[in-house]
Computed example of a mutant assay.
Amino acid sequence: MHVHSETSDGDLMRAYAAGDTLAFEALYDRHALPLWRFLQRQLQNPALSDDLAQDVWFSVVRQAAGYQELARFRTWLFTLAHHRLVDHWRRHKPLASLDAHTEDGAALADTLAAESGFGPERRLDSREQAQALLDALACLPELQRTAFLLQAEGGFSVADIAKATGVTLETARSRLRYARARLRETLEAFA
């Protein structure tokens, strides 16, 4: 199979299941950064985010042969990530300090802005805005934060969020609404 940017994720996954390793590389290139950012925003720990992301990708490899396109590949991938987070939180206390630094010494707030070309997340203008957003995200209840980050980092629709988290459409909608309202209220000073 010739892999190019217009091949659907589902076609790539089926090609990978049939033995095309370039198809897996294309999937990984498309989804690795948003997946890692989703995990990092939840965990605030780059090494742990790396570990969980790697575990998610290993799950993709293990499940490739039986993959059925019941939802978009991205929805399935982020659902796997959500389940890994839930498993991790059951075993450990959630969230490291927002004052933590990445392995290269950068403050977590400095890692917040997305590189151009990686989705709808807008670039933040200053370190203060980035830190304020991190602080506001950390203050959200876990379920609201998860819903918000699935949409912001994963590009999920409300229906996708409901499916990934195992709740009704209205519950997912409410979690997003409350998360946005709380973030808007907290970040009013930067508007």
Rank of each mutant, 00 (worst) to 15 (best):
A159D: 14
T171P: 03
E6C: 02
P46R: 02
A15V: 00
S8Y: 02
R122I: 03
S8W: 12
R177S: 12
L95P: 12
L150M: 12
A23I: 01
D110M: 13
P94R: 10
F78S: 02
Q131G: 12
S97T: 14
S97V: 01
V158P: 12
L149W: 04
H92A: 12
Q144N: 08
A17N: 07
E121H: 07
G166M: 15
D20Q: 05
P46Y: 01
L27D: 07
R182F: 02
L112H: 04
F38H: 06
Q68Y: 09
R173I: 00
H2M: 04
D9W: 01
H2N: 15
E153C: 15
A181E: 05
A191C: 03
Q44R: 07
R180F: 02
L70Q: 13
G19V: 00
T111N: 01
T168L: 09
L98A: 03
Q151C: 10
D20L: 04
F78L: 15
R84Y: 00
F38T: 01
A130K: 10
D51L: 01
T168E: 15
Q129Y: 11
L108F: 13
E185A: 11
Y67R: 00
R14L: 14
F78N: 06
R173G: 08
G10L: 03
M1D: 03
T171K: 09
Q144L: 03
G166Q: 10
G154D: 15
Q40Y: 07
R173W: 08
R145M: 03
A147L: 05
S174D: 03
R127P: 01
L150E: 08
R182V: 02
S59Y: 07
V167F: 04
F156R: 08
W76H: 15
A179D: 10
D135L: 15
A100M: 04
A114E: 06
S5V: 03
A64P: 02
T146E: 13
L124Y: 08
F24A: 07
T165G: 04
A147F: 12
H4E: 08
E153Y: 01
E6F: 04
A81Y: 05
A179C: 10
V56K: 13
L27V: 10
R72A: 11
T7H: 00
Q63N: 05
R62D: 14
F118M: 11
T7L: 09
F24G: 05
